[in-house]
Computed example of a mutant assay.
Amino acid sequence: MKTQPILILGGTGKTGRRVAARLKQRGHEVRVASRKGSTRFDWTDENTWEPALVGVGAAYLVDSMDGDAATSMSAFGKLAAASGVQRLVLLSHRDWVVPEGEEKLPCERAVKESGAEWTLLKPSWFAQNFSEDAFFRGQVLAGEVKWPVGDGVEPFVDVEDIADVAVAALTESGHAGEAYELSGPQLLGLADVAAELARATDRALAYRPVSPEDFASLAAREGLPDDFTALLNELFSWIEARRFATLADGVQRALGREPRAFASYATATAQTGVWHP
């Protein structure tokens, strides 16, 4: 794989930039594609797809998050395989619960049917949301984590683990046809999260449960779009219901090691100063 470029979509995002950095450190040629980068890529402009794929041996995929994301992914996946791409690694999600008759995660089917080798990454909530999303980082800085999740729990995953698994799937044998569910090693409530962040930062921090309506009001004051807030409230309701309150073994299966603990993430991140007022 070192002789062919590896294409990274979403290369400026939480996972993509880490995947690109790791690949470069290992000597791979990396092609980071974005709407405004040197390699232009736009899910809504199919004219940008083929040039981004020229000579590529493997690709890291992040879908468009639009309503027709699966249609675009299907067309892109088939084009990638026809262009000679051998491996596709898709950043997906832990299985969504959908109404009867609807398809779960159709982008996964699109990648599976592309004709290339595929690997699916299915992570839980990112630990890095507390340090790299302005809204949630702001709550940490303000001293109160305000989520409408009651006493729900979630196995927050360190994005560094996701990137490590992605690099392995892109560059090593043995990962084709695998769907790796990725989680941290512990189920944590938001009170646990607040306590870990307080210890790491040596600052007062508490969890205050709020209603979905109150959260929507908080989000509106911070300028979050209404549709994004509605999505967050839906995801929060799943945490409250403990829908994904199980530990996954994807990191162990892919890498042969245990996933990083939330406390380790919090300690390492606090040292960067990101939570300094």
Rank of each mutant, 00 (worst) to 15 (best):
L141M: 00
L141F: 07
A142T: 07
A142G: 10
G143I: 01
E144H: 09
E144D: 12
E144V: 12
V145H: 01
V145P: 01
V145S: 00
K146M: 10
K146N: 08
W147D: 06
P148Q: 13
P148Y: 09
G150H: 00
G150D: 03
G150K: 10
G150Q: 01
D151E: 15
G152H: 06
G152N: 09
G152F: 08
V153E: 07
E154H: 11
E154Q: 15
E154I: 14
E154V: 09
E154G: 13
P155L: 08
P155C: 13
F156W: 12
F156I: 15
V157C: 12
V157F: 15
V157P: 05
D158E: 14
D158G: 14
V159P: 09
V159C: 12
E160G: 09
E160D: 12
E160T: 15
E160Y: 12
D161C: 08
I162A: 03
I162K: 04
I162G: 03
A163F: 09
A163D: 11
D164P: 11
D164K: 14
D164Q: 14
D164S: 14
D164E: 15
V165C: 03
V165M: 03
V165G: 02
A166S: 12
A166C: 14
V167N: 01
V167T: 08
V167Q: 00
V167M: 02
A168R: 01
A168W: 02
A168M: 14
A168T: 10
L170Y: 00
T171I: 10
T171S: 14
E172K: 08
E172G: 06
E172W: 09
E172H: 13
S173N: 11
S173A: 11
H175N: 09
H175K: 00
A176V: 02
A176M: 10
A176Y: 03
A176G: 10
G177P: 06
G177D: 03
E178V: 03
E178Q: 06
A179L: 05
A179V: 06
A179Y: 00
Y180E: 00
Y180V: 04
Y180Q: 02
E181H: 12
E181Y: 06
E181R: 07
L182K: 01
L182W: 01
S183H: 03
S183Q: 02
G184M: 08
G184N: 04
G184D: 07
P185I: 01
P185L: 09
P185E: 05
Q186W: 00
Q186F: 02
L187Y: 12
L187G: 04
L188E: 03
L188H: 07
L188F: 12
G189I: 12
L190A: 10
A191Q: 15
A191V: 15
A191K: 14
A191Y: 11
A191P: 10
D192Y: 02
V193H: 03
A194H: 13
A195H: 04
E196M: 14
E196G: 07
L197A: 04
L197D: 00
L197Y: 05
L197I: 10
A198Q: 13
A198F: 11
R199Y: 07
R199L: 13
A200H: 07
A200P: 04
A200C: 15
T201G: 05
D202R: 15
D202Q: 13
D202W: 09
R203L: 12
A204N: 06
A204I: 09
L205W: 02
Y207W: 02
Y207F: 04
R208Y: 02
R208D: 08
